[in-house]
């Protein structure tokens, strides 16, 4: 049974249709990446999945008792609000000291509990957000462009962490991204949006889809070639690429 499923989902934002006719579902243990250009409805879909946006048409079904760990695109903490990391992790539910320590350790930042949120670096901040999401003991993690503001090594490390968490905690994961390099390689399935679902499927299938290429052009081919090279040696290449042979 799927953890979250949408049927014929249509969403409006301020009288403007942002997404139409989306059928989507995700199972336990799956990593699904949502890609698409700016304004394609990625964040709207995610907000509908967590229940923050009401469907204009169609439906969103969540498994009964589903626990969602949500990592927002950005979280601006007003400078007038004093907040230690430990206090932040106690929202909305109070947590034991041990649980907080464990979540911070899982997120790779074990020593930050007493720091002020405002004093964290971008990467530390994202990992603390992830730790907070993990404290909900989620069945599914939903990350909305969670690596914005990280440099590429930071981003790669963050996604390795996500993949690792999936393995250890048997989570389902939905990630939103508009940069494709690292994300697609780590996904089981890719959903390409542009106001509707343009194409969907395994990363290499989506990467070959004409709809996808029309949206993203050939600029990403290098990265995808890298992906194929690492993961799919038997794939027949129908385009030139520039990596050196082993």
């Amino acid at each position: 049974m799927s953890l979250i499923a949408t049927r014929d989902l249509t969403l409006y934002h301020d009288d403007l249709k942002v997404l139409e006719g989306v059928n989507f579902s995700i199972q336990r243990g799956e990593i699904v990446t949502i890609v698409g250009p700016n304004g394609s409805g990625k964040s709207s879909l995610v907000r509908a999945l967590i229940g923050a946006m009401t469907p204009a048409n169609g439906s969103v079904t969540r498994a009964p008792g589903l626990r969602i760990g949500y990592v927002p695109q950005k979280l601006q903490i007003d400078s007038t609000l004093p907040l230690t990391v430990a206090r932040f992790l106690n929202l909305p539910q109070r947590q034991s000291r041990a649980a907080i320590k464990e979540a911070l350790t899982q997120a790779g930042v074990p020593d930050l509990a007493q720091r002020q949120m405002a004093g964290l670096s971008g990467g530390q901040f994202q990992r603390v957000l992830l730790a907070r999401a993990l404290l909900a003991k989620p069945d599914i993690l939903i990350l909305d462009e969670a690596t914005q503001g990280l440099d590429q090594p930071g981003e790669a490390a963050f996604y390795r962490l996500i993949a690792d968490l999936r393995e250890r905690l048997d989570l389902a994961i939905v990630m939103v991204s508009h940069d494709l390099h690292v994300v697609m390689a780590a996904s089981d399935r890719v959903l390409c949006l542009n106001g509707h679902v343009c194409c969907e499927g395994a990363p290499e299938i989506v990467a070959d889809a004409p709809e996808y290429r029309a949206l993203f052009g050939s600029g990403t081919q290098g990265a995808l070639a890298l992906y194929r090279h690492e993961h799919d040696h038997g794939h027949s290449h129908d385009h030139p690429h520039d990596h050196s042979p082993h």
């Binding site: 229940g51 969602i68 760990g69 949500y70 979280l75 909305p92 539910q93 939903i142």
Partner: peptide
Amino acid sequence: LNPDLAVAA
């Protein structure tokens, strides 16, 4: 902090 965080929980 963030309305969406509240909704998700």
